[in-house]
Amino acid sequence: MLKAKLSVSEKIGMAVIGIVLATMVFLCIFPFYHMLVVAISNGTAVIQGKVTIWPIGFSLESFKQLFRDPYVGYAYKNTLLYVFLGTIINLFLTTMCAYPLSRHNLIGKKYFMGIIVFTMLFSGGMIPTYIMVAITLNLKNTFWAVLLLNGMSTFNMIVMRTFFITTIPESLVEAAKIDGANDIKIFTRVVLPLAKPILATMFLFYAVAQWNRFFDYMLFLNDKKTYPLQLLIRAMVIEGNLGETAQKQSAANDLFVSETGIKYAVILITVLPIIMLYPFIQKYLVKGQMVGSLKG
């Protein structure tokens, strides 16, 4: 492929764009890099403010101490379970709700849509929600309280419905019907395979939301062993509650670990799994994110 020769002004423009983008990349990556550097540095150097660009006194003690806390292990397992189950529930409910609402022949479509949109604009508030979930449904101290409470995002459902309207033409559904497919077959064999971009986008949105969720767990769960990682992280980072992690550190020796080091270590182990998801679904994500911009 021949390269077009760039004029001087174009070269300058490209250089400016490159610098701006590089700056943006640096601004995004540096906080993570800094946290990593602090987490793997000697605690004394950290509290003396000497650690900026390079680690000083390389040590993995922050991470070791973090994983010595048994509750970090429980929380990691719980989070993976909650994200996995929660995202499946989210995708199931969202697709099952969005697809029928995208079909023109659904009886009472406007009525259903109105009711659903109403929940996006008005919520019951914390106290009525708590009474319904914890007392009426008796789901207190089970993770179902949180997973079912957040079963579907109305906004995401509307985005997915828009995708179905704009991407799955009625004629395609009719053709499948003529070929003898029933509604379930049409949905599973025709609609869902064509909906991969939006499913991937929704998967990411929901997985991130599930990964970040903490308040509902704090409210509905009582057993510390069932807490998700975010609740533990919040206690450690925001409220300075380092729990057993801080109890087990040795003071005033080479293995000294600063509270900041432990906090940064815990942030890193929290964000890494969800960041690692992006490369695998990025190609779908780019397509899927455009969906919301189209008229429904």
């Binding site: 914390m126 106290i127 708590y130 009474i131 914890a134 007392i135 903490f214 308040f215 704090m218 409210l219 510390k224 807490y227 609740l231 533990l232 919040r234 206690a235 925001i238 409220e239 509650n241 729990g243």
Partner: peptide, 14 residues
């Protein structure tokens, strides 16, 4: 471990 006051107030209110 965290947001204790919020939890207390919610439980009291409900």
């Amino acid at each position: 471990m965290s947001d204790y006051e919020d939890k207390c107030k919610t439980l009291i209110a409900t």
